[in-house]
Design a protein around this nucleic acid. Structure first.
Lengths: 201, 201
DNA sequence: ATTATAAGTGACAGGTTGTCATAGGTCAAC
DNA sequence: GTTGACCTATGACAACCTGTCACTTATAAT
């Protein structure tokens, strides 16, 4: 987490710094991004950076969390719009993630170089930890009657499966540079298979 | 790929170097491993390393591929032993990957810091690219009559789904330090859900 | 004005990487 | 056995990067 000092910063300076972070992390994945670049861009001295953040990771995860908050809201919105149909919402979600908005390159880099810490953070979009309070809203928005689950706990596994497959498809889309149409078709195919199951009755 | 010079090395020296690589990459993930450490361990001068490999990545992927070759053989063996039942074989495979053999830490590091390039390489275990010749043996070993697929092409998606879920479970197992029993139970649960499908009929 | 507390700063030590000029070995041919 | 072609070995080096720290400057409160 950023240090107190960062939060005390006047809005202008804070924004400049955020922009610098955003640019650097859009250009290179976490492990390749450099603090030197960031401070050059933000035009702050080296010492100041360490006044605000513990290190590169700290800054990165701050950014990432900020962005994910929006994404999560968007996802919950989709879920409500699709009357609690998890699969429909996921497909819509998948599509928005492949659209080239201002955060496209940031997410692309993050997905292509996703270690377990990044993934854990990203999974918050579908907040899902067993016994988390935060996930109440998610649980409330999903129409469970459509799902083949008996206990609430099983929803946890459903979410795990779906998010695993979704992230993998996004990564595939980016690493192979598939067209949006191709990638979407593949994703939908897989979602369908998840729905009906993989073994013959 | 390692340079010619590496292959020309006398076996003893080659082995020493491989051991040094293996140790370094077991101790730290690719992005944190250092060439300086490797050459210290292997007791070779800096210039020599670059005589053998293009860079750290080159050395890493050489190692990884070597190891994966064995793993793949093991997996195909399991598949045959379980009479072509893909799901049974996967569960056995999952278990062997969580056993603490000599390569345990190497794979743990790789899984916890798996970018798309590492993942692509690892997926070779379940070699599966559409229109690849290499995957003939895999296709031959799987009893497709047990699967809900119509065209051969659909097997591609089945494998994608299963490997996505499997890798995610392995990562979960390692990052949360679950016990083998706990982790296996969760994995089997998810495999079952994949088999029968996620939506109510 | 004085003092305490917070923030800003850049030179620096210690580490890393990839390169390159130089030195050393091997082997076939003359 | 000398020559030259070719491959390999070597470590000093430039260029970079990170995290720290002693020091300066600002702000606020008494």
């Amino acid at each position: 987490m950023p240090k107190e000092t960062f939060h005390n910063l006047p809005d202008g300076k804070k924004q400049t710094l955020m922009d610098a972070l955003q640019k650097e992390f859009s250009q290179a994945p976490l492990f390749q991004a450099s603090i030197s670049n960031i401070i050059k861009r933000a035009n702050i001295p080296r010492g100041s950076f360490y006044q605000y953040f513990v290190d590169k990771e700290d800054a990165y995860f701050y950014m990432l969390n900020q962005m994910l908050h929006e994404v999560r809201e968007r996802f919950l919105g989709m879920l409500e719009k699709s009357d609690g149909d998890l699969f429909d919402a996921m497909v819509t979600f998948y599509q928005t993630m492949t659209e080239e908005d201002e955060n496209f390159h940031f997410f692309k880099n993050s997905l292509l170089n996703m270690n377990h810490k990044i993934e854990k953070t990203m999974s918050k979009i579908f907040e899902n930890e067993q016994s988390s309070e935060q996930c109440a809203r998610l649980h409330a928005s999903i129409d469970k009657s459509k799902l083949k689950i008996e206990k609430d706990e099983e929803l946890y596994y459903v979410m795990k499966i779906i998010s695993a497959v979704t992230f993998h498809n996004l990564i595939d889309r980016f690493s192979k540079n598939l067209s949006n149409e191709q990638a979407l078709a593949q994703y939908c195919k897989q979602i369908d298979m998840l729905k009906i199951g993989l073994v013959r009755d």
